[in-house]
């Protein structure tokens, strides 16, 4: 089911974020930098969306506009039912925000910082206490509750950031590069917490990431951003299917067999292997094997490779997201593109 189809199915839900023509231009030496160049987006309640793109693509700037931290240069947005320009206070009360950097002050103790956060959102004393106990428990922070923030590990700090962002149980949570700087274990742990939260509460989650696997495994919907624009929007599966297709590789005993097979199925032979492009590799493989069988050709091995989100990004931009910069020299197309603005 494509994203468009799934959206039709969700027509009855409410729109959590609507943005039209969002732009942000920063003054800079050598002329203004257009960090975000006209972003339109709609996010329904309950969605888990990731902004994927290289550093400087404008992801964080867009997020900062949606969370009222930055006024847009042009365009408008409604977040949780309120205009970011006219009613920033109303937006702030309804959203949770977990920034790229740390949310907690070094000199504070873990529980104290959570208490302050509860007060900032107008929660009562008892409500705050109950909420803190719940969050410390679910985010595995009970043991460090009375510790000073500066003594926490990176993973603990990040979980505290999440607890702070969730103190008022917002219906919409923004996370800016949530797992940057974390070791693989802490990252997996963080994802698990985010997914649990999602399953338990149905919170709408909007995150930015430059990690392919994060967007792939965590998000249901991926918006690919580059040079300040959204260049693709859909489920990870739909994006991969629509843009790159699967690659089926069949191995043969001899090069002769391979060439014969290539003629038979219309693939491309090289050495003892034939590669074949397909929309759905899992269906193509058995079909190809049957076809070869009836032609008297025996494949020794069969595999198919799903394209990654990196293939999607590559086919959209001519650059690899995995090796931003390294790809510039190898992809001819990349040389003609303007340098990625840093913002």
């Amino acid at each position: 089911m494509s994203y468009i189809e799934s959206k039709v199915g969700l027509m009855s839900t409410e729109t959590m974020i609507t943005a039209r023509g969002l732009r942000k231009t920063f003054p800079a030496k050598g002329g203004p930098v257009e960090a975000v160049r006209g972003v339109d987006l709609d996010v329904e309640a309950g969605e888990l969306v990731a902004f994927l793109g290289p550093n400087g693509a404008g992801k964080s700037t867009t997020l900062r506009m949606l969370t009222t931290l930055l006024p847009p240069s042009a365009g408008e947005a409604e977040v949780a039912g309120h205009s970011i320009a006219r009613e920033p206070g109303e937006v702030r009360r309804r959203i949770g925000y977990i920034g790229q950097r740390s949310s907690a002050s070094n000199s504070q103790r873990v529980r104290d910082e959570l208490r302050s956060q509860g007060a900032f959102y107008g929660l009562g004393r008892r409500e705050t206490r109950d909420r803190i106990d719940e969050l410390l428990e679910s985010l595995e922070l009970v043991a460090v509750a009375t510790r000073q923030v500066q003594s926490l590990s990176g993973g603990q700090r990040r979980r505290l950031d999440i607890a702070l962002g969730l103190i008022h149980a917002p219906a919409l949570l923004f996370l800016d590069e949530p797992s940057t700087g974390l070791d693989p274990h802490s990252r997996a742990n963080l994802w698990q917490h985010i997914l649990e939260l999602r399953d338990r509460t149905g919170t709408t989650i909007f995150l930015t990431t430059h990690y392919l696997d994060e967007a792939d495994q965590l998000a249901e919907r991926v918006m690919v951003m580059d040079h300040g624009e959204i260049i693709a929007d859909g489920t990870a599966t739909a994006l991969k299917r629509g843009l790159a297709g699967d690659t089926v590789t069949l191995g043969f005993e001899t090069g002769e067999d391979a060439r014969a097979a290539a003629v038979q199925i219309g693939g491309e032979a090289s050495g003892q292997a034939v590669t074949f492009a397909s929309d759905a590799g899992e269906h193509a493989v058995p079909q190809l094997l049957r076809q070869l069988d009836s032609a008297g050709l025996r494949a020794e091995s069969a595999e198919y490779r799903r394209p990654t989100l990196d293939d999607v990004f590559l086919s959209l931009t001519g650059r690899s997201l995995r090796e931003e910069g390294a790809a510039h020299g190898t992809i001819p197309d990349a040389a003609e593109r303007p340098a990625v603005p840093t913002a």
Binding site: L69, R93, Y97, S103, A104
Partner: peptide, 18 residues
């Protein structure tokens, strides 16, 4: 102290709070 909070990021958190 505020400068430290600005650089660490916790000041930003208070700017998003209502």
């Amino acid at each position: 102290n505020l400068l430290d909070d600005i650089m660490v990021g916790s000041h930003e958190r208070t700017l998003v709070a209502p």
